[in-house]
């Protein structure tokens, strides 16, 4: 029964929304009802789905880059106190600097719009996976660390055979947060870079629809973004559960 509760509540909310729009005679250029939004999507499904795909490509690329950089830097910090002292302040600076503020610079410096958007989204998605992995690498059981020392293990053996496997649940928790942030970062990057054309993402389509006062189409784009966020969260949650179940 609990499995259907979200579906039922979501359907009820949509129905209430539609009834409110009808009952209060709200014009669709202010708040469109779900039926108008569905209609806007059906008017151009190919265009909107292509835009969604473009946004998802930026999301996936930035999530992969954030994972690679986050795990690599967290491992470097675990391996060497000097690296820790060097990396940690920069990671915090990266976390607290609003990507909107640095995005124009990134666009100028990088040049290629896709690469610029991936870099912006990576900055947004980087910190959770980095901070969680770093915390996980520090959370290896002290008795096992003693055992590694007694066996004469090297620093990289300790990281590869003990600290990284111990950090896996932490990494997966960070990955789930970063997955959502990568999507947010991709949308922000699209807004800031203003990358248009045939390969433009959903953010550009929202801007475009806004300029044309096509409010139902804006909502259709938002609905697609919400669905994509839910799908990313669910997919990463499923991957996390499967990986953790497999190793326990």
């Amino acid at each position: 029964m609990n499995r259907f509760a979200p579906v039922v509540s979501f359907a009820a909310a949509l129905a209430a929304w539609q009834l409110a729009v009808w009952g209060l005679h709200v014009p669709s250029y202010l708040v469109p009802g779900p039926l108008a939004i569905g209609g806007a999507f059906l008017a151009d499904p190919g265009g909107l789905l292509r835009a969604l795909l473009a946004t998802l490509m930026v999301t996936a690329a930035s999530l992969a880059a954030a994972c690679f950089a986050g795990v690599l830097l967290a491992c470097a910090m675990a391996a060497n106190p000097w690296a820790r002292a060097l990396i940690k302040p920069w990671a915090v600076i990266l976390q607290v600097t609003p990507v909107v503020a640095v995005a124009p610079l990134i666009v100028v410096w990088v040049g290629n719009p896709f690469a610029a958007m991936v870099l912006c989204a990576t900055i947004v998605a980087f910190f959770p996976v980095f901070a969680n992995t770093a915390a996980g690498l520090e959370a290896a059981p002290p008795e096992l660390l003693d055992l590694f020392r007694l066996s004469g293990a090297g620093r990289w053996q300790e990281i590869w055979l003990l600290r990284l496997p111990a950090a896996l649940p932490y990494f997966l928790a960070g990955l789930r947060v970063s997955g959502g942030l990568a999507l947010v970062g991709a949308v922000v990057a699209e807004f800031v870079t203003g990358a248009g054309g045939a390969a433009s993402g959903l953010a550009f389509r929202i801007l475009e629809a806004g300029y044309r006062l096509q409010v139902p189409r804006m909502f259709a784009c938002l609905a697609l973004l919400s669905a994509a966020g839910l799908a990313i969260n669910a997919a990463l949650g499923a991957v996390s559960s499967a990986v953790l179940a497999r190793r326990s």
Partner: peptide
Amino acid sequence: GDIGFVFQDPTLMPWATAAENAALPLRL
């Protein structure tokens, strides 16, 4: 390798099998 240590808790690696855990000092 000259010193074996058994802790109060078994302190095994939960992601490794019994054989992998037992072989850890040799593998290292």
